[in-house]
Structures are given as structure tokens and as C-alpha cells.
């Protein structure tokens, strides 16, 4: 356990050294925050309770999602390319013989990165948003704690999905297609373009059941206090289930991949 803690800490520090990139990213998130905020104001001024949000909640959605974008790696980034590169070059064989679990190793590293980006890229845009717009940020520290727990669960789901995608590189020579599809689904079904609660009809119902909604939509809903009590427990259960299922699937695929490497490359 201490090993994985060290891996996470070193990943955190590694991302902390990219100061200029972090500042540039904060700038971009803030600019996009402003632009999207005005489009949401335009929509919510016509449909005041669209998707169950009032205008302040809709604006909170915009700024929170800008704050989470980098941490949740919704536009790419993170460990996926690195792992794929190691699989392609065959360096992965070295990792498999390490006395550490491959999945936990990368998970720790990805959580370290996410922790930095949540702080480094998240706080400033959220603060700017709160200064310039009326946001519906909760005052209760308990809600914030629940939000953080939900973010963590969302990160687990996000990691599990990208880990599965990365592992396909063991079988596919060119992963560009899978990456593309995965990025597309993530962009659209996480709610980073538009809240999933606004998606119409059955399409929206399905979208809200998919694992991508656990990455952004659910954590933001927890922050907005859309659900409380049993509803909150339901949110956690939803995220937890997807995390478990997908992490287990990753484990299974990792087993197959290991066998493939050992048989072919031994």
C-alpha cells in the first residue's frame, strides 16, 4: 500500500512541475467557462427549470465541469497514451514482472495526477466563476465532502474505462480508432458539452445510465444537492457499481494480456 502511495505522490509532483502548462490550462478553462456560462444563461432564461436546474445551478454546472475537466481527463491526457506506448514498444513486459500490480500501479499514478489537476486546474476557474456569476455552491461542508467522494468514485470509473481502452493495444496494432471512439463517447456522455439532464427523452434516460455519466454528471449533481438521503446513496451506488464492474473487467483483460505476453514474449 505504501508503494502505491509513493507512486501517487510522485505522479502528483511530476504534474506539479508543469507550471506554465497548468497556468495555460487554467486560462483556457476559465475562458471556456465564460463562453459556456453565457450560452447556458441564454437557454435557462427561456426555460428556467430545464433539466431540473435553476439558472444558478446550471451555471454551477458549467464552472464545476470546467474545474473537473483536466482532473477527470475528459478531453484526453492522463496515463492512457503512456501505457499504450509501453505496450506498443514492448516495455510493458518489464512492468509485468515488477512486484507490483499493473492496474493498481497505473491507478495510483493516475489518481496522483488527478489530485494535482483538481487543485491546480480546478480551484481558480471555480473561484473566478463564483466571483463573476451567481453560483449555487453548497454551504454545508458535508455536501462538499460528499462531492469529493463522488469525484473520487468518478475518477475510478474514468480510470477503469481508459485502462480497458489502453489494454486493447495488446491486440490492436493501431489503436487510433478505439481511442477516437472512446474520446467521443467520453466527451458527449460525461455531460461536458451539455448536462445529461437536458438530453431529451429515452436518449437522455439511457445516457444517464452509462458509465460516462459517473465521471462528471453524477459528481456535479451531488455538489448541486439534486439528490439527498436515499438519492445520494443511490448516486454513490451507481458510481460504485460501475467502478467495480469496469475495474474487474480491466483485471480480466489484464490477465488475458499477461498470458499473451508470457506465451509470446517469454
Amino acid at each position: 500500500m505504501r508503494l502505491y502511495g509513493a507512486v501517487a505522490a510522485s505522479s502528483f509532483r511530476r504534474y506539479a512541475t508543469y507550471r506554465v502548462a497548468t497556468a495555460a490550462g487554467v486560462f483556457t478553462n476559465t475562458v471556456f467557462g465564460f463562453i459556456l456560462a453565457y450560452t447556458f444563461i441564454a437557454l435557462w432564461s427561456i426555460r428556467p427549470h430545464l433539466g431540473g436546474y435553476d439558472q444558478a445551478q446550471a451555471l454551477t454546472f458549467v464552472w464545476t465541469s470546467q474545474a473537473m475537466l483536466a482532473a477527470a481527463a475528459l478531453l484526453g491526457g492522463g496515463f492512457q497514451q503512456e501505457l499504450q506506448e509501453r505496450i506498443r514498444t514492448g516495455d510493458i513486459a518489464i512492468d509485468l514482472y515488477r512486484p507490483a500490480d499493473l492496474q493498481l500501479w497505473w491507478l495510483a499514478s493516475d489518481l496522483g495526477r488527478a489530485a494535482f489537476q483538481l487543485l491546480g486546474r480546478g480551484l481558480v476557474p471555480l473561484a473566478v466563476g463564483a466571483l463573476c456569476f451567481d453560483l449555487a455552491l453548497p454551504s454545508s461542508p458535508l455536501v462538499w465532502l460528499a462531492f469529493l467522494a463522488s469525484v473520487l468514485l468518478g475518477l475510478l470509473v474514468g480510470f477503469a474505462v481508459r485502462y480497458l481502452v489502453a489494454l486493447t493495444s495488446f491486440w490492436l496494432l493501431d489503436g487510433a480508432g478505439v481511442d477516437m471512439v472512446s474520446g467521443l463517447l467520453c466527451l458527449f456522455f460525461s455531460g461536458s458539452l451539455l448536462p445529461l439532464t437536458v438530453f431529451p427523452g429515452a436518449f437522455g434516460d439511457v445516457a444517464r445510465m452509462l458509465p460516462w455519466s459517473a465521471m462528471l454528471q453524477v459528481p456535479v449533481d451531488v455538489l448541486l444537492g439534486v439528490n439527498s438521503g436515499a438519492g445520494l446513496a443511490g448516486s454513490f451506488a451507481f458510481q460504485g457499481c460501475w467502478a467495480l464492474v469496469l475495474l474487474a473487467a480491466g483485471r480480466l483483460l489484464q490477465g488475458l494480456a499477461t498470458r499473451k505476453v508470457v506465451v509470446q514474449g517469454g
Binding site: 450560452t39 441564454a42 437557454l43 427561456i46 477516437m180 474520446g183 458527449f188 451539455l194 437536458v198
Partner: peptide, 29 residues
């Protein structure tokens, strides 16, 4: 071929988002 298609779809998503907005309203601004 795959990346051209992907590029086409990814850039199309923000238009889908706009269409969803207009699902709920006839005019925006």
C-alpha cells in the same frame, strides 16, 4: 480513414449539443 471519420464526428458533437438546446427552445438570443 478512421481519424478523418473521427474528426468529423468529434467536431460534429458540439453541433449536436446546439441541436439539443434547440430541442428545448425555438430561439436562442
Amino acid at each position: 480513414a478512421l481519424t478523418v471519420l473521427g474528426n468529423f464526428l468529434v467536431t460534429g458533437l458540439d453541433f449536436v449539443a446546439i441541436m439539443i438546446m434547440f430541442w428545448h427552445t425555438d430561439v436562442l438570443g
